[in-house]
Design a protein around this nucleic acid. Structure first.
Length: 741
DNA sequence: GGCAACGACAAACTG
DNA sequence: TGTCGTTGCC
């Protein structure tokens, strides 16, 4: 018996679910159950309107969301219908469609997908080839421009035509060559997946017609984050039937930097004049206290008229806490203390808590604090599994197996394991391949048969490599994926190589990572033999880090604000709310960019269900340098009566400090802290109470020896050498005890 | 060509 | 503070 379609849905949600055919825009605030609406809409189409599930295409923001939607639909419409649906992200859907229809583009089916690292390698090659200064024309910067161009559907020729500055010309040349080399490698980068799809539809109306007929119903989540290419794709697909159901929230648009255009959602009604607009204004996630605070931040953005008025009947809840830590370590330590306290009280578990930050680099201080406090935690992002060198090397071989013309993969492992092919041989091979106008693999074949410019030693090394590749290639179609993998490891002596490169402990670590990759492959062994490898590689390229987020593990989640989109936690800490970090220093120049940072903060705040902590540090170390900070401007938009300070009040008998921080602080001094975890601060000392050589005890760091001590502002900064390392502590803050004897 | 040591430079978010 | 790339030596 399938679950009921409408139980638990409010009238607005029901209206959305039951909207008649035609374009629909659902403007949904955070926590308004938009994913639920989207899912139930699909179920409604199938069950009430008798739409064939085969005709429904739903686009989600992450693969994880796609999986969850399908799971939910199993209960609503049954397994068979749920599996007949097409659900996925723009990128994964395009990859799938292109593979099916790429004959029209005159390319081979088995294209590979280049990720950021591959792109960079390729662009480095381009920049060198064009004799450009890599310092002046950083490959990353070139790629950033090219990526924006692609997101706007501007190709190399048009780019060259449109742009007039000298730099533009350089970029245009790089762009063109970059595309040539991608094509030669039979590769597409992430942006190409979308661009190629749009082009395919433009150039082959019959193909487009096929998709338009097949997907009579189109649903798109997070519409505010679509870029020009995605927008065009949607427009193409929906052109016939207009059955477009778009869900989004302009206040949560945070991907402008990668080409998302907020106008796509703002102008929906102009694009589709017969559109119905439905507002989802009730928030089911957060308490009133959290919602009010978040709304204050978003309203601080100014003039733009807001169409949504969010409300909740979840009750007022605990006030939002504002906390100042001395530095990022104190901030992290506060977070850890607070989580430990909440967990000890039995109120929440570790898994209920999340810490969010602007940049991944901030996770280190948190990690240290969590280790010190013995809390379970997981860090999402940072160096990803698939970014590890050994994994990328092994993957490069797998990619070569799928497609020997992949030049980036080939150069990556040309000399790994080391086989005596150095820089010179590689350069010579590249030059020669360019001269012949063939992929590197082809050039290697030529060495075998004809005359080549290589000395005997280089020649035999290169042929050795070719023999390796060919040996693996012969196994490609006869072995299941995991067996192919094992054979490959033996043939390449991967384990032995790792043992040579690293000391035994690290080598074992890396070997375990490689084995982990093999575990992932297990899931593909059941597919038809010929599609195992390509399917595996495609999914590896397109998984996002959040896709792997598991909520089963009872651990504190550390995550960037961007990745946190769409998630929710009972307890949320936002750390590093300082100028230069949020808004990030690189967005300070442009108003619109600062507004995007504001929305980012809003997204973070609205992830919280019951408790929200806003944290910033008085000083913060970047590049190992410690600097005085300024609280983020966005805090000024929050009425002070909405906030509770968890920080102890200073007894400010000292003269006003030179730092603006101290004057700023007094303006937000709210009501007495509700959740104060620490005893009040002692009065400021007038002379150092700690002296070098003294033995002290700290509740977290243990015993240590004072290195130095000095008076700062109205407190005392003590540098103490603990067993693990030296730390700078504030005497009033750190609960240091003198040890006698 | 390979390896070790040193120095420069970097860190915004991601599919 | 850590990573990566270059340099210089074997």
């Amino acid at each position: 018996m399938p679950d009921d379609l409408f139980t638990g849905l409010n009238p607005a949600q029901q209206r959305a679910v039951q909207a008649v055919d035609g374009p629909v825009l659902v403007l949904a605030g955070p926590g308004s159950g938009k994913t639920r609406v989207l899912t139930h809409r699909v179920a409604y189409l199938i069950r009430a309107l008798q739409v064939d599930p085969y005709q429904i295409l739903a686009v989600t923001f992450t693969n994880k969301a796609a999986r969850e939607m399908k799971q939910r639909l199993v209960h609503l419409v049954g397994e068979e219908a749920a599996y007949a649906l097409t659900v996925g992200t723009f990128h994964s859907l395009c990859a799938r469609f292109l593979r099916r229809d790429s004959v029209h583009l005159g390319r081979e089916r088995d294209f590979v997908i280049y990720d950021g690292d591959d792109q960079e390698r390729l662009m480095r090659r381009v920049v060198r080839e064009l004799n450009l200064d890599e310092k002046k024309y950083a490959p990353r910067a070139m790629l950033a421009r090219i990526s924006s161009a692609k997101n706007e559907l501007v190709g190399p020729a048009e780019y060259a035509r449109l742009n007039r500055t000298y730099l533009d010309e350089i970029v245009a040349r790089c762009y063109e060559r970059y595309q040539q080399l991608l094509r030669q490698s039979n590769a597409l980068d992430f942006d190409d997946l979308l661009v190629e799809m749009v082009h395919l539809f433009e150039q082959h109306p019959a193909v487009l017609g096929h998709y338009q007929r097949r997907y009579a119903y189109l649903l798109v989540d997070e519409y505010q984050d679509t870029n020009r290419a995605q927008y065009t794709l949607v427009k193409q697909l929906a052109a016939q039937r207009h059955n477009l159901f778009a869900v989004g929230d302009n206040d949560q648009s945070i991907y402008g930097w990668r080409g998302a255009d907020i106008r796509n959602i703002l102008q929906f009604e102009q694009d589709y004049p017969d559109a119905q607009v439905i507002l989802l204004e009730q928030n089911y996630r957060s308490t009133q206290a959290i919602l009010d605070t978040a709304q204050a931040v978003i309203a601080g953005g100014g003039k733009q008229k807001h169409r949504k008025n969010l409300w909740t009947d979840n009750g007022s809840g605990t006030k939002v806490s504002l906390h100042e830590g001395y530095d990022q370590d104190a901030e992290a330590s506060f977070v850890a203390d607070e989580i430990a306290r909440l967990v000890a009280s039995g109120e929440v578990s570790y898994g209920d808590c999340a810490v969010m930050y602007r940049v991944n680099a901030q996770s280190r201080a948190l990690e240290e604090a969590f280790i010190q406090h013995g809390l379970r935690y997981q860090i999402i992002g940072g160096t990803r599994f698939y970014d590890r060198k050994e994994i990328r090397d092994v993957l490069a071989y797998l990619r070569l197996t799928a497609n020997p013309y992949d030049n980036v993969a080939l150069t990556r492992v040309l000399n790994w394991p080391p086989r005596g092919i150095g820089e010179r041989s590689e350069a010579e091979l590249t030059r020669w391949a360019n001269e012949l106008g063939v992929p590197l693999y082809q050039a290697l074949r030529e060495i075998e048969v004809g005359t080549s410019p290589f000395a005997a030693r280089a020649r035999s090394a290169l042929l050795g490599f070719l023999a390796n590749i060919d040996q693996i290639l012969t196994m490609r179609n006869s072995l299941p994926l995991t067996d192919l993998f094992d054979a490959m490891m033996i043939c390449l002596e991967v384990r032995e190589t790792l043992l040579k490169e690293y000391d035994s402990e690290e080598a074992e670590d890396r070997w375990r990572n490689v084995q982990e990759l093999r575990n992932v492959m297990n899931e593909y062994n059941h597919l038809p033999l010929e599609s195992q490898l390509s399917t595996f590689l495609e999914e590896v390229a397109l998984v996002a880090e959040v896709d792997k987020l598991e909520d089963k593990a009872d651990a504190v989640t550390c995550i960037t604000l961007h990745q946190a989109k769409g998630l929710e936690y009972p307890v949320v800490f936002l750390v590093g709310l300082e100028e230069g970090l949020l808004p990030h220093s690189r967005s300070l120049n442009e108003r619109e960019q600062v507004e995007e940072e504001r929305r980012l903060l809003y997204v973070g705040m609205t992830r919280a269900r019951q408790r929200l902590y806003l944290c910033y540090a008085f000083r913060r170390a970047t590049f190992g340098r410690s600097n005085i900070t300024t609280r983020t401007r966005f805090l000024a938009d929050i009425p002070k009566e909405l906030l509770a300070q968890t920080k102890q009040q200073r007894k400010t008998t000292a003269p006003p400090a030179q730092s603006s921080m101290f004057t700023a602080r007094s303006t937000i001094a709210g009501p007495p802290p509700k959740t104060a975890a620490r005893p009040p601060r002692p009065a400021a000392p007038s002379s150092p109470t700690f002296a070098p050589g003294q033995h002290v005890h700290h509740p977290t760091f243990g015993d240590g020896v004072v290195v130095s001590s000095r008076l700062i502002e109205n407190d005392e900064e003590v540098t103490v050498k603990f067993a693990d390392k030296e730390r700078r502590l504030l005497a009033s803050f750190a609960k240091l005890e003198h040890l006698t004897g």
